[in-house]
Nucleic acid binder design. Structure first.
Lengths: 100, 100
DNA sequence: AGACTATTTTCTTGTTTCGCCAAATAGCAA
DNA sequence: TTGCTATTTGGCGAAACAAGAAAATAGTCT
């Protein structure tokens, strides 16, 4: 298995996305940037948990943040990551259609 | 956070892909179908480990398998999952170009 | 049936992830 | 300074994940 680093790097990004809450966040950030408390409101879990999720996404280079007053606004750096969503939906449909 | 199930389902698929070895496998299966021992040869880890990875991908509905003699051939069900690869590469490039 | 090959499953161990609580940090306002 | 709000970070227990060794399964061949 050559080019191991290539797949490791990709896996890091995929892993960062591989969580329901984080996929939800990316979907929201695709519309417009949001601060942590707005997302926390929408998600419903502890603010620290939401902040953790956001830092995971930032470490993966998927989102970026800026500070305005005492709020931190996050925005989507790479909207292309959402392209997978269509494929996921397609996959789910196919699964439903399977006999076995 | 409404539509939780939607994001949970997508996360299952993403999680299945979020591993270097499994990304490598998908890349290989995109060319043509392969049996477990062929993949094991390419990857180098234990055959049981490779088989496990394949079952993760199959459970997620990304690949399918058929039995020929005493070998099991896996094939990619949904090539569209590989579209993310381009975005990953793009993300990596951007990261390199960042100053901070 | 018995040997052999390919694959899957079980088990065990070590690592990572998750989510909350509590404490720390930062900025604004009085 | 003190208080208030928004956010991040450290710590901890629970759950999920990963990988190899060994045992179990299934199919082929003689």
């Amino acid at each position: 298995m050559t080019e191991t680093t290539k797949y490791t790097a990709m896996a890091l990004i995929m892993k960062a996305m591989a969580h329901p809450t984080r996929l939800f966040i990316l979907d929201k950030l695709n519309e417009k940037e949001h601060c942590v408390c707005e997302l926390q409101e929408l998600i419903g879990s502890d603010m620290s948990t939401v902040s953790r999720h956001l830092s995971v996404l930032r470490n993966a280079g998927i989102v970026d943040s800026r500070k305005h007053n005492n709020q931190v606004y996050y925005r989507l750096l790479c909207p292309c990551v959402l392209d997978v969503y269509q494929c996921m939906i397609q996959l789910r449909q196919e699964d439903k259609g399977l006999t076995k």
